[in-house]
Amino acid sequence: MEEVKVYSRASSIPKNPYIGFCPGCMHSTTFKVIAEVLDELGIVDKTIECNGVGCSGLGLGYVYLDNVFCAHGRACAVATGIKRTNPDNIVFTYQGDGDGGSIGIAETIYAANRGENITMILINNGTYGMTGGQMAPTTLVGQKATTAPWGRNPEEHGYPVHIAELLDSLTAPAYIARVAMNSVQNVRKAKACIKKAFQYQMEGKGFSYVEVMSNCPTNWGMSPLETLEYMEEHTLKEFKLGEIRAK
């Protein structure tokens, strides 16, 4: 019987990365999907990754690409500088929700508003993972955090920020989608959207944004399986999945 290779490791994910993620964390799934997309589009050799600060910054050691360690929140500004001076490269940012949606909300909105021809991947897990579970812009009402020990209270903390919908209020962005990594079906849909986002950049269409709904077993205080259930029952009800804009 002839052997047919049906699966192989993406070229920019090494066998033994010197940094890994917590068990059950969807950062590694997201990186795998991005790396597969880069291979499928044949753009690995011209891709430059701009990492945010927080767990997203661990991508510096998890993904083997030319990359930049950006200051917290500034990845879209850094990516702007790279892409404007190296238009032949494919430039993407990989940021958390605190990075891209709180401290870096100005950089995010203005890069999107200029229609920078870059791709932004934003991980929405409702918490500051690396610093130990503080309240994020995306923390759900009632969801506990170390800095909201009785849960997010709208009267005190306001409501979760919907970054994709904020960007949808702008004219320039070309592609906006929200995807999730919590099931096989959703991972496949996510990959299709991420691929489309990079294709938009390759075609010079302008700013493409994919918000990836993710989990944080460590700081949510749940087993990985419990986080999948929590996402279905809570987070995905607050943050609706789908393509929001595809110009």
């Binding site: 500004a77 850094v78 500088g81």
Partner: peptide, 11 residues
């Protein structure tokens, strides 16, 4: 930070 990116790209 834009300048940081452009400098990192060699310009």
């Amino acid at each position: 930070n834009m300048v940081y990116g452009a400098a990192g790209g060699g310009t």
